[in-house]
Design a binder for these strands. Structure first.
Lengths: 224, 224, 224, 224
DNA sequence: TATGAATGAGACTTCATTCAT
DNA sequence: GATGAATGAAGTCTCATTCAT
């Protein structure tokens, strides 16, 4: 019924300890995710959610405890899937530059899929007093960063990557390139003539991905 | 009283046609800007604004018409100042690479100063049905993009910059690198040991700026 | 519990399509009706309604959607009952003059019962930009006018009623006589010594009704 | 500048004791009159008045004391002009039936001219607790009624008018016929094909006036 | 005389949640 | 397990009036 990879979800659920989601809960999550992305957390009312999901208004409190807990559930549910499959890329036999290309392609695919909730996370996470607990998100991010650092440092040791590069800032450059495009989609769609949703998706997976790959490879090999 | 460059504001005002802001209005704007950045638009109530600004709650409507009009005023007020002074950089006698460095430094300074309202703009502007009129913001963005494109194309003609680069995607890479760092400030502050506000500011103006400068120069000169 | 003829209401409801009123809703309607009559639409606050009806202030929106929708509901509810039972009067065996007498008596009873909301309708309906949808009211009015016209024209054909009479203006004369008395009740109560509410009711059903009956019969048989 | 008969106004002003209206006040009155007619008393804000009259919002309180006092001033100003010139009609040499015709024509002209404020008076005066003092209006009404009664009784003595007629109810029939048409203007304009404002005016002064004249004459001479 | 900034009160509506069923 | 009626709190905005200028 949903385009969610149930297997992964279950893995993740185990990792978090509890969390068992019924089909109805998943339905609510999916609907809410879109509404949150459209209107933000405060801009989305439980009324709206209930109506869109075609459920009783009391169900949100009933199933998730509160609106905030619902957000937390969604974030944990979605963000967690963000863990990139770098391991297998790292252990394949290709060159370091190819590895970087592959990882970037994977990252872009991931964040494009989860862009809606990521947007909300960007917003909520950067607040002084976030409404929800982002410890899971944080842990995930740090893990990914570590994996990436390991790869780059290995490349540096082999003399393939420049040592002047600030590794910690590469991830922001990758993700930021995507998100800044996404946040200014209206402008760039016009500039690049992307009138349909599919056009934008296509653009992201080809032109943007190539640009970022090129950028990162350039920076990794650049010597002043 | 405020850290606003009044001269520039007035210039901009002329450009916009009207807009005369009293000191009280400026005070409200400043307070609101912070609250919006902290809590978002929907998360900030006029009650909150009035209380923080120590004014009567009716003053918001009185001065700005409505909460949304207030946001619009703030955006026009802030975003407009975003027009970069590329012209003089372009016309100075330095090399193209130096020009790029200078422009990036200017951009970073600008967006760091306006980051709070930019965050809100990112959020509201990328919605399907934005609450406010962003035509001014859009115009500004497109203008800036054009200026930048002109510079790069000139450099390409002179054989200094690679022709493989996707010029339209450079701006997202610059801005995105900054904003992704900002949106994940909590993570990167920890990673880079930036515990005080000033530390982060300093980091942005030195390490991050250098990283971005290096990145853009790399991409502009990269040949596969 | 209420003086409402539930049977008729239900009939009307079927005619309108939907509309199911709970007892609580009926209670609110009744209270509101009086307040609207006393203070007008704009002069009545939902606060006032809630307090008088002894309900939570949010119930008005909850049940009716908005204050205006509440008015609309009341009007549809009341006005609809205005459909006169002329048919049976027309088909009884009495003389045309008797029929006119009966119909006038029925009309006066009806409008006296619904005078409060009628007053509001007079006011709102005659505005340039009415706040509510009066299509139902309009339809009802036109229907009634048509029924009346049919009767008079039949009487004219039989040579009983004068042909000089302006049929469309008879209804305004009937209703207007009542309402002008009602709107100037304070004056006429004094003139006719009607000090109690019941005295006025009595006066309406006897003296005023006779006056109107006499008036209409006079005009229908008058030959210059 | 205004279509007001200043002479009469001054006479009336003397009658009321005080009241001196500057041109600006008259301007406000005129504007307010229309707004009150359009939106009712509670539906009209001083803001609206100030804006429409192109004056400062504080002027209303400044000139008239309060919004309610403004209404009172308008009513006294307008209603007072309602005093009909029956005297000269009574003393002219024509027949009683002609006198009635003339008086009705005068009345219709008067109330059509003052219909807007009359509507408001109908509404406010019939409230249990009117917001303003209507003693002047009341006095005027009673005077007029007395004049009319005198005429009819004289006609009855001469054997021209029936003695069965309820004199006090004739005025409501006259005024009511007009106002019920006016309050349902939307319906009757359609029925009579009166699409332009002038058409309606014309209809009032010809067809409606004739109908009422005919009606009153009929009732005055009707013998069962 | 005339202004407009400023205010406290109150307008209508929607909020997230609870609780009896 | 699930509902929906009901609620108190808070949302934004407009109200008529005042007061210093």
């Amino acid at each position: 019924m949903f385009d969610l990879n149930n297997c992964l979800i279950l893995c993740r659920i185990i990792d978090l300890g509890i969390m068992e989601l019924s089909e109805k809960q998943l339905h609510i999550i999916k609907v809410t995710e879109e509404l949150f992305a459209k209107n933000g957390f405060d801009g989305t009312s439980v009324r709206m959610i209930a109506k869109t999901a075609n459920i009783n208004i009391a169900m949100i409190s009933y199933y998730f405890g509160s609106k905030e807990k619902l957000l937390e559930t969604i974030v944990n549910y979605r963000i967690s899937n963000f863990k990139i499959e770098i391991d297998q890329v790292i252990s394949d036999g290709t060159s370091y530059l190819n590895k970087v290309d592959s990882i970037i392609a994977i990252i872009i695919k991931r964040i494009h899929k989860g862009r809606r909730i990521q947007k909300l996370v960007h917003f909520e996470f950067s607040r002084e007093n976030p409404k929800i607990d982002f410890s899971n998100y944080l842990k995930q991010k740090e893990e990914n960063l570590e994996l990436f650092r390991t790869l780059i440092e290995a490349g540096q040791k082999e003399g393939i990557f420049s040592k002047d590069v600030n590794i910690e800032l590469i991830i922001p450059t990758i993700l930021g390139s995507y998100f800044n495009l996404y946040y200014n989609k209206k402008i760039y769609s016009k500039v690049h003539g992307l009138f349909k949703e599919e056009d934008f998706d296509q653009f992201v997976f080809t032109t943007l991905t190539q640009h970022i790959q090129r950028t990162i490879k350039a920076i990794l090999t650049y010597e002043e």
